[in-house]
């Protein structure tokens, strides 16, 4: 592992909501620090509404951050997408969750893949077709797919096309926003294997957003857990699954339905999951998880815990863990 490619410092993204004359804020991302090193596969895991996709979109420049810094390859990019230099956009790409809505159904696959190649001037006009065939080949699709519309191919192949589109500009960093959660497991395995092969071949760095912890166990180098706009635990994958510390992580792990006895033994003792994720408009005071936490203490409802290192490289944000 070498230097950091993406460094997020104190990132906050709030969305205003007007309610009876007063303006409240949805604190989608509320002070996140995250460093991603070159060549890493960073797994960002959380339930819906925890702000993981908001982080992705803010890094991509689709949302303007409320506060904080995003440093990508030594450059602060906490600005809107329109103010970013083109060279930077070329290095930073995203694959969305639902390939059905993120690919233009009116265009054929050739037109879809042509756009990034033209905008970033990757190849000359005469070599365009050759490059598109090559791109399709990297995602294991036959060349004749070029003249199909995304509508005419299966869900898995459609996602391959969006991966090819992301790869078109020869990026260094790709954000994968739940790329397989809309697909079946047998197709998921294929896509993930291909993504990992590409990461290896092209020396890419991934920020992999998902809600599937078992998937992260198999592919991520580090895992971060998010809850209500904050990261609550972050560690190297091996350490993370061997020694999950945060009560929320334990609750998540013990809720996963598994298919073998071997996995059953790896789960922490059953933490009965209670309650639901609160609205990010009214974040509870103190630790945002304290309402659902089985290890709740008095201090949890008063003071928000800070991130502390529990073991080398293993950070956790919890009062109960810090005392022990």
């Amino acid at each position: 592992m070498s230097e950091a490619i993406l460094d997020i410092k104190g990132l906050k993204t709030y969305f205003p909501v007007k309610k009876k004359g007063e303006t409240l804020f949805v604190k989608a991302v509320d002070g996140v620090d995250l460093t991603i090193k070159k060549g890493e596969v960073m797994g960002l895991v959380g339930e819906s509404g925890s702000g993981k996709s908001t982080i992705a979109y803010t890094v991509m420049g689709m949302y303007q951050p409320t506060a904080g810094e995003i440093i990508f390859q030594g450059q602060n990019i906490a600005t809107a997408s329109s103010k970013r230099p083109l060279s930077l956009k070329k290095d930073l790409q995203i694959v969305f969750q639902d390939p059905g809505s993120s690919l233009n159904g009116q265009q054929n696959i050739r037109q879809i893949l042509e756009l990034p190649l033209r905008v970033h001037k990757i190849v000359s006009k005469s070599e365009m077709e050759k490059k598109i065939v090559e791109l399709l080949k990297t995602v294991e699709l036959p060349a004749y797919y070029m003249y199909k519309t995304p509508w005419a191919v299966g869900g898995g192949e459609r996602q391959m096309v969006s991966i090819a589109r992301a790869l078109a500009s020869n990026p260094k960093f790709i954000i994968l926003d739940e790329p397989t959660s809309a697909l079946d497991v047998s197709i998921q395995a294929k896509i993930i294997n291909m993504l990992m092969k590409l990461q290896h071949e092209q020396e890419l760095t991934y920020l992999f957003i998902t809600h599937d912890l078992s998937l992260m166990r198999n592919i991520a180098t580090r895992v971060a857990i998010m809850y209500l706009g904050k990261v609550c635990e972050i560690a190297d994958t091996g350490e993370f699954f061997k020694n999950p510390l945060h009560p929320y992580t334990q609750m998540l792990l013990s809720s996963i339905p598994v298919i073998s006895e071997e996995e059953e033994r790896l789960k922490p003792a059953k933490v009965v999951s209670t309650g639901e994720i609160p609205s990010p408009v009214n974040v509870p005071p103190g630790c945002s998880f304290h309402l659902r936490c089985p290890q709740r203490m008095d201090i949890c409802s008063k003071m928000d815990p800070v991130m502390q290192e529990a073991a080398p490289g293993h950070y956790v944000r919890c009062h109960a863990c810090q005392k022990a």
Binding site: G154, E157, A189, K190, S214, L215, F241, I256, L266, K267
Partner: peptide
């Protein structure tokens, strides 16, 4: 068998090939 090997395991050990086709 293909379906079972495609499921990512909490125990780790990488992913199987999946099932070819659709």
């Amino acid at each position: 068998r293909g379906l079972m090997s495609s499921v990512p395991r909490l125990a780790g050990g990488g992913l199987a090939e999946g099932i070819y086709g659709h």
